[in-house]
């Protein structure tokens, strides 16, 4: 469905961030993109959704194709209409609008009133907490509720591909699990394809079916999530599980001896 081929992204003409990155999202599946801070995950999402331009970034090489159509250089407001919706890192709700108004904003690209009304109810079904707070200003919602609203707002556009950037940011573990459960449910029921960027690797690898691991602007490892979960390097560096299958104790670990194998 989405094919990113060998893209190179340069900021301000001088800073090379992505160095030949390729990935693909299969229709109806959750794909996850993992990696340390500064690996270029968010940049990848911005390259897809066209937000790079406003940050002086540019895709200098490679192609981004969505349903067989090239997205390179297309402005973000057009890309949204093609069916790609990015939920940005940090909630970024419109603080002075109430919950329902925020959701209506998400449906900006649609013109079927009845459908929008139905979808507002649908979002409330996924996130019952939002229904209770429907007429409150979203600036007064708690962090978790704001994140729910951000995802709900994305659903309102009826996207074919949903780009989620760290939906778990700053949320309590229980709430994180709740949000991930809903993401999986949305994927199952609405058949929305999802590209998920996460720091919480273990949860992401549970809900997704295919995963990519990025480092220094490149994909260093990819595979079906079951396989990634078995990979010793992923287990140690991303899931924090030592070779014995127990949580690694740093007390008697000679950490420097073990290198990530893909870095040579």
């Amino acid at each position: 469905m989405l094919n990113v081929n060998n893209i190179e992204v340069v900021y301000s003409d001088v800073i090379l961030v992505l160095k030949g990155l390729s990935l693909a999202c299969k229709e109806g599946q959750i794909t996850t993109l993992l990696g340390a801070n500064g690996a270029g995950k968010s940049t990848t999402l911005k390259a897809i959704s066209g937000l790079l331009k406003s940050e002086e970034g540019e895709v200098t090489k490679g192609t981004i194709e969505f349903m067989g159509e090239k997205l390179n250089g297309m402005p973000p407001e057009k890309i949204v209409r093609k069916g790609i919706f990015q939920v940005m890192e940090g909630r970024r709700v419109f603080e002075d609008l109430d919950v329902v108004e925020n959701l209506r904003c998400g449906a900006y690209t649609r013109s079927d009133r009845a459908g929008v009304k139905r979808d507002i109810d649908l979002v409330f079904d996924y996130f019952p907490r939002l229904r209770d707070r429907r007429s409150q200003l979203s600036g007064y919602l708690s962090g978790g509720e704001q994140q729910m609203l951000a995802i709900g707002r994305a659903l309102m556009a009826r996207p074919r591909l949903l780009l989620l950037d760290e939906p778990s940011l700053g949320l309590a573990p229980l709430l994180v699990r709740e949000i991930f459960r809903i993401i999986a449910k949305i994927n199952e029921e609405e058949k929305t394809t999802i590209l998920l960027v996460e720091q919480n690797a273990s949860l992401a690898l549970q809900v997704a079916s295919y995963g990519y691991i990025m480092e220094m602007g490149k994909v260093v490892l990819d595979g079906p999530c079951e396989k990634l979960r078995e990979n010793p390097d992923v287990r140690e560096f991303y899931l924090g599980i030592g070779e014995g299958g127990t949580k690694r104790s740093f007390k008697n670990a000679k950490h420097y001896k073990r290198r990530k194998r893909w870095l040579s």
């Binding site: 340069v10 301000s12 003409d13 001088v14 800073i15 090379l16």
Partner: peptide, 14 residues
């Protein structure tokens, strides 16, 4: 600043 950054690694821009 951009011009300076560009010439930093001349002939490579990054």
């Amino acid at each position: 600043r951009q011009i300076k950054a560009y010439w930093k690694l001349f002939p490579f821009s990054y």
